[in-house]
Structures are given as structure tokens and as C-alpha cells.
């Protein structure tokens, strides 16, 4: 019952922020005019702005935020480590590398889903590497070290690919791929990301019971009838699909999957399974809020989402490291 209250509260928060995101922008339309134009399509310029510019941006914020929150919660549940986060352990960075390679080689233009598929491949490689390096029980030290190495390599290779591009603008775009932004994304981005994001959500939502059982460790979970191989497969593909597709359209946005599960864990009684839907909604709310904030703070500078996330997330990350430092040594 308490879970029901929590989820509806978070749902209402997401809805309110979604509305706020739709009403935020440099063209100062009134709320009534904006929503009327959005729903009826009347008022040429207003309708164009609402339907083609602000609506896809708000929808993407929900898709990306929910994907990152959900993936963070699932990875943490599986590795039983609150430091596991797609951005910090290099999954997002590798997805960005995959996307950049697809864009610069022209593969992305060959068919509609090539871009998210390439990003998915990148994140898949990173998740598999992390699981292989950190072992079944994600020890903090190996997890963080492996994450640093994978992030650094992915970042360097992304930079290399962009440097080799014949396009003079590409070089300066490393910052987008590393810090993420939703500015001027269109419905094209919504459609190419949607199938993979949906697949990721479906797979990850089915790991809840297995993650709960893993609270007792691998042996106990297996003896409770949980198929660990299947669980691992759902986690790996689910995370890669959700994070990969999100990164392909919005760049790598860090810390969402760290901050959101950390804040919500006490509210779900620590249960990893219950944390999944709560983190998905919480992630959506956080990215929506951050995307509204970047438009308020520096309206004409395309402030990157990752900058805001790091300002909130990095201190929390340090706090978590401080708390688990005994386990680190």
C-alpha cells in the first residue's frame, strides 16, 4: 500500500514537471494558449513550437530519465553495490562511442534504427566488461577502477573518432556526447529510441523478484529457484538497450542512476525490486527538472544536462565512497 502511495506521488511529480517542461521556453506563450495549440493544432507558430519542439523534448526527458533511473537501480540490485551507475561505470560513455562511430562512418544513415543499435552495442560491451571484471558480487574497488578505465577509454575513442571527422563542427561535440543535452531534439529521436527503451524497460521490470532474492547472495537466490543466468541476461540486455538508446539521442548523462535510487531506497524499505518502478519515475522527474533548469539558468547557451547532474551527483558519490570506504580497503 505504501508502495502505491509512493508511486502515485512520483507519478504526479512527473506529470507536473512534464507540464512545466512543455511551458518552458524562450517564446513566451501563455499556458492556456500553449496547451490549446498543443491539443488542437490551432495557431500556426504556437502549434509548431509546442508539437515539434517542446513535446518531443519533454517526452525524451521522461524516456531518458526513466531509463537511467531504472538501469541504475537494477545494476545496483544485481551487483549489490550502491555505487553502480551506468554513467560512472562507463556504460553511457561506451554507448556514446557506439553512436559516434555509427554517425561518423555513415552507418547511422543506412537505416533508421542503426544509430540506437550501435549505441546498444557499445553499452553491451561495457556492461559485459564490468560484469566480467567486477565479478558476481560487485566489489566497490574493482567496480570503480573498471568503471574509470572503461569511461576513459570510451571518452578517448569518442574524441578520436570526432577528431577524424571531415566535419568541422564534429570536433567540438565531444562535450555533448560526454555531458548530454536534450536541446532541439525532435520526434525523429523519440521514434528511433522508443523501441529499445521499451525493450529495456520490459526486461528490467522483470528482474524485480530475482533482485530481491539476490539480497541474500547468489547461492541463496539460486536455491530459491531464481535462474541466475537468465536474470543476468535480462539485466545486461535490458540495461544496454535502455541506456544505449537514451545515450544515442541525448548523449551520456551521468549520476541520474546514482542519485535517484539513493534518495528513494529508504522509501521502499531497501527492497531492490520495489526500487525499480520508483527509480524509473524518480529518474524521469529528475531529468525533466534538470532540463527545465538548464533552460532557466542559461536560456541561450545550451547548458549541458550532465553539468547539473554532476553538481548534484558528485558530492553524493563522494559521500557514498566515504561511507563504504571500509569495504574499499
Amino acid at each position: 500500500m505504501r508502495q502505491g502511495v509512493l508511486l502515485s506521488t512520483l507519478g504526479a511529480l512527473v506529470a507536473a514537471l512534464f507540464l512545466l517542461s512543455l511551458l518552458t521556453g524562450p517564446a513566451g506563450f501563455g499556458p492556456g494558449e500553449s496547451l490549446h495549440a498543443l491539443l488542437t493544432g490551432q495557431g500556426e507558430a504556437v502549434a509548431l513550437v509546442m508539437r515539434e519542439i517542446r513535446l518531443p523534448r519533454a517526452i525524451l526527458a521522461v524516456m531518458v530519465g526513466a531509463s537511467l533511473g531504472l538501469s541504475g537501480a537494477a545494476l545496483q540490485g544485481y551487483l549489490r553495490n550502491p555505487l553502480a551507475e551506468p554513467g560512472l561505470i562507463g556504460v553511457s560513455g561506451s554507448a556514446a562511442l557506439g553512436a559516434v562511430i555509427a554517425l561518423q562512418t555513415g552507418v547511422a544513415a543506412s537505416f533508421a534504427l542503426a544509430l540506437p543499435l550501435a549505441a546498444l552495442t557499445g553499452s553491451l560491451v561495457a556492461v559485459l566488461l564490468i560484469l566480467a571484471l567486477a565479478g558476481p558480487r560487485g566489489e566497490s574497488l574493482t567496480l570503480i577502477l573498471a568503471g574509470i578505465a572503461i569511461s576513459a577509454l570510451a571518452g578517448a575513442l569518442t574524441s578520436l573518432v570526432l577528431n577524424l571527422s571531415p566535419n568541422p563542427f564534429a570536433v567540438s561535440e565531444t562535450v555533448f556526447w560526454m555531458l548530454g543535452s536534450l536541446a532541439d531534439r525532435s520526434f525523429r529521436h523519440v521514434w528511433i529510441a522508443l523501441p529499445f527503451v521499451a525493450l529495456g524497460w520490459f526486461l528490467l521490470s522483470r528482474t524485480a523478484r530475482g533482485l530481491d532474492a539476490l539480497t541474500l547472495g547468489e547461492d541463496a537466490a539460486a536455491s530459491l529457484g531464481i535462474g541466475l543466468t537468465r536474470l543476468r541476461l535480462m539485466l545486461v540486455i535490458g540495461t544496454a538497450a535502455a541506456v544505449g538508446a537514451s545515450t544515442a539521442v541525448a548523449g551520456a548523462i551521468g549520476f541520474v542512476g546514482l542519485v535517484v535510487p539513493h534518495l528513494l531506497r529508504p522509501l521502499v524499505g531497501g527492497q531492490p525490486g520495489r526500487l525499480l518502478p520508483a527509480s524509473a519515475l524518480g529518474g524521469a522527474a529528475m531529468v525533466l527538472a534538470a532540463d527545465v533548469a538548464v533552460r532557466f539558468i542559461l536560456p541561450d547557451r545550451d547548458l549541458k544536462l550532465g553539468v547539473l547532474m554532476a553538481l548534484v551527483g558528485a558530492p553524493l558519490f563522494l559521500h557514498l565512497i566515504y561511507k563504504t570506504r571500509r569495504q574499499l580497503t
Binding site: G25, V49, I53, P166, N167, S172, D184
Partner: peptide, 28 residues
């Protein structure tokens, strides 16, 4: 930088852009 939505509201008679460069970029 100018927001695309402001351009949509201004609705000019002519928009002057650039020829795309080879290779892909988010900027373009």
C-alpha cells in the same frame, strides 16, 4: 545562439542556412 522556437514565432520570409559539411555533426 537563437532558440528554434523563437525562429518559428518570427516566421521570416526567407531563412538563410549553410551547406552541410561532409561527415555527421549534431551541430548541423
Amino acid at each position: 545562439r537563437v532558440a528554434l522556437e523563437l525562429l518559428a514565432v518570427a516566421a521570416p520570409d526567407m531563412i538563410i542556412g549553410t551547406e552541410p559539411y561532409p561527415g555527421a555533426s549534431r551541430s548541423e
